[in-house]
Write a protein that binds this DNA or RNA. Structure first.
Lengths: 217, 217
DNA sequence: GGGCGACTGTAAGGCTGGCGCAAGCTTGGG
DNA sequence: CCCAAGCTTGCGCCAGCCTTACAGTCGCCC
């Protein structure tokens, strides 16, 4: 994978470049914050190894700038053993990890592996139903731009229907989903909630199958 | 947030539990790989602090098992200074970080913040919410120019909401994030903290969804 | 070591949103 | 055309929530 090493000490940089190159990585090299920013503007890296003390400023500025711009590339900071405050500042600025100089190259490689592995997306729980957007995990939904607020009971009914999408859900099944076993329900509560949902979501969202139950479209 | 400490040395464990508890975290404690696995089976943690030498085996086995099962919870390994090979093995087994014993508790806390942040999807620690500025990593916030001071519990509630921004967080979920399992909570503590937060942050910052939970705007 | 302030969680009282019943209306099937 | 199933609206009551007060605990400073 493609990595960026930001380091102004030539000897150290050479050693790292050589080692990581042998590991099969493509490593670019920047010697200042200016070079680092230029490289980051142009290229997407799997990981950045960042020295803090650079001739034209602190590497931390580079990191902060990136994070402020919404960039989530993994950053590993290289610090001297005694710079504990630097490390904390680095982690708090959005660094993913640090490594203590002088570091073992095998360890650096292992950390790069660990952090690049992380760069994977999170599952989205969003569903679209006609003109209605549903975020099931968040228990929220929208109709166009506007959020629709459901009460907890309304949501419980809707969620149950959502879980059985495409299938018919009997009134008894809905009652089971809504009420604990001991609760006695003897009105037309389900019908009331269906009605309220239709008012909020649009009449054609929930279909009635007479004598059988309800179904989501 | 909810953490798991896997450590069989009582003194060390006590110190860590005390410190992290004061930071407002809910910390569970496991003394063996068996206990650790049992806890991990049941609960989702924001971060795990893992000692490797345990009475019934190596903590590495716990970590490997989790990773094999697709679990991505951040693991921080605690090792002795000279166990470099342990660290590399740990990182390759899927650990996110290590910390060298004896470690500084403040540093451990900083790393926990950094890693649980990233696991939630964003390493960015500076957030703006209406007229309130939040530095999540530093656990500080401002309203306009003035800094607002939160107690650790208040912060814990706020942070949990922040982690679920845009989603509705149930009261039970909040209690899970705040309290260790051995703690008995039976009252309206959550509501009290919500109220205190609203006094400090402005009433419209936290929205109540009756019967569902709370949400940050 | 004792007094003080900060923080936490319980308790109590008041308010209100929404829950579920009821009653009357509409629709569809036979 | 009739009846059963479903729809809709209104409303009283209570669970859920908010707020304030307070007691207990802990750390800190003198």
């Amino acid at each position: 994978m493609r990595l960026l090493l930001v380091e102004d000490t030539q000897d150290l940089a050479d050693a790292v470049l050589l080692f990581l190159g042998r590991e099969g990585h493509a490593v670019d090299h920047a010697r200042s914050t200016a070079e680092a920013n230029a490289a980051l503007d142009v290229t997407e890296y799997a990981c950045v190894i960042l020295d803090l003390g650079l001739p034209d400023g602190s590497g931390l500025e580079v990191l902060k700038g990136r994070r402020a711009a919404g960039d989530r590339t993994p950053f590993i900071i290289a610090t001297a053993r005694d710079q504990i405050t630097d490390r904390i500042a680095g982690l708090d600025a959005g660094a993913d990890d640090y490594i203590v100089k002088p570091f073992d190259l095998g360890e650096l490689a292992a950390r790069i592996r660990a952090h690049s592995r992380r760069a994977q997306g999170s599952p989205v729980t969003r569903i679209q139903l006609g003109e209605v957007d549903v975020d099931r995990a968040a228990a929220r939904l929208w109709r166009g731009q506007k959020e629709i607020r459901l009460t907890s009971r309304e949501w419980a009914v809707f969620d149950a229907l959502l879980g059985a999408r495409g299938r018919i859900l009997g009134k008894a099944a809905l009652e089971d989903a809504l009420y604990a076993y001991d609760a006695t329900i003897e009105g037309n509560a389900i019908e009331v909630y269906i009605s309220r949902l239709r008012q909020k979501l649009g009449a054609q969202m929930i279909e009635t199958r007479r004598g059988l139950g309800y179904m989501l479209r």
